[in-house]
Amino acid sequence: PVYFVDAPDFFLAHELAHQWWGQAVGWNNYHEQWLSEGFAQYFASLYARHAQGDDVFRGIMRQMRDWAMQQSDQGPVYLGYRLGHIQGDKRIFRALVYNKGAMVLHMLHRLLGDEVFFRGVRRFYTDRQYQKAGTEDLRLAFEQVSSVSLTRFFDRYIHSTGLPELGFTYRLETAPEEESALVVKLRFEQRTDELYDVPVTVTLHYRTGDSQNVVVSVTERVTEVRVPLAGPLSRVDVNRDFEALARIVDQN
């Protein structure tokens, strides 16, 4: 694992996490190494948020995202240790198995929410404790607790190299039920042939200086949501937290 200046205990937390991910729950073969390293990387990040706060956590996730985005075209996470082998560049392996793996878990966390995500983690751990596991076991555990099909999610992010490309626009509208009230319509359009499931944060900034984060689950070719406004807007930011593993073009 990499060293983060603002999270001095990150390395230790990562290695401790292997007591659960990699030791208590093993991985079937080299294709599944991300279940050990990606999990340890993500849970070390969650520890950093607990110990150092949200700003440090966001900085860690942003760095992981940047590394994953830079190297994603080098091969799917599922290639395991073979990533970067031909080039003799271990950074590719770390960027994808460790950091993209952690980002995939983080996006799944944001798609499902705290309660369902951690129920899925516990289900996976309980079902596969002292055994070897694969990505399919993880998918089934999360599907059982969420009743959501996650085949496409894991196919896109673990078995493929592509990343979503999204166009984003917003528009102010009057609320249908109350003409004096305003809502903002947030619109995402997926530009790749293949569709992805990706949670994206939209930050609404008000003239009062307050702000509001809205997490939009982008799952269709076009995803639109309407958000009631608490006052006049000054601006709108998309993916300001850099927690979506996607290329996003703000078209406003």
Rank of each mutant, 00 (worst) to 15 (best):
I86S: 15
I86V: 13
Q87A: 13
Q87L: 12
G88H: 13
G88Q: 10
G88F: 11
K90H: 11
K90R: 13
R91N: 15
R91Y: 02
R91S: 12
I92F: 07
F93P: 09
R94M: 07
R94I: 11
A95V: 05
A95L: 08
A95H: 10
V97G: 04
V97T: 07
V97M: 06
V97D: 01
Y98S: 04
Y98W: 08
N99E: 15
N99R: 10
N99K: 11
K100R: 15
K100Q: 14
G101A: 06
G101C: 09
G101N: 11
G101W: 10
G101V: 06
A102W: 01
A102E: 00
A102T: 03
A102L: 09
M103N: 04
V104T: 10
H106L: 08
M107C: 01
M107T: 03
L108H: 05
H109C: 03
R110M: 12
L111M: 13
L111T: 07
L111Q: 10
L112W: 03
L112K: 04
L112V: 04
L112H: 00
L112M: 08
G113C: 05
G113P: 04
D114M: 03
D114N: 14
E115C: 08
E115W: 00
V116C: 13
V116A: 09
F117Y: 15
F118T: 04
F118C: 06
F118V: 06
F118E: 06
F118K: 02
R119S: 09
R119H: 14
R119F: 00
G120T: 04
G120R: 06
G120I: 05
G120H: 01
V121H: 01
V121C: 04
V121M: 06
R122S: 12
R122E: 11
F124T: 01
F124S: 07
F124Q: 02
Y125K: 08
Y125F: 15
T126R: 13
R128Y: 06
R128H: 11
R128Q: 15
Q129W: 05
Q129E: 15
Q131V: 08
Q131A: 15
Q131N: 09
Q131D: 14
Q131G: 08
Q131F: 08
Q131H: 15
K132D: 12
K132A: 12
K132M: 12
K132N: 14
A133S: 15
G134M: 00
G134Y: 01
G134I: 00
G134D: 13
T135A: 13
E136L: 15
E136G: 05
D137N: 13
D137P: 03
D137H: 15
L138G: 00
L138F: 09
L138R: 00
L138W: 03
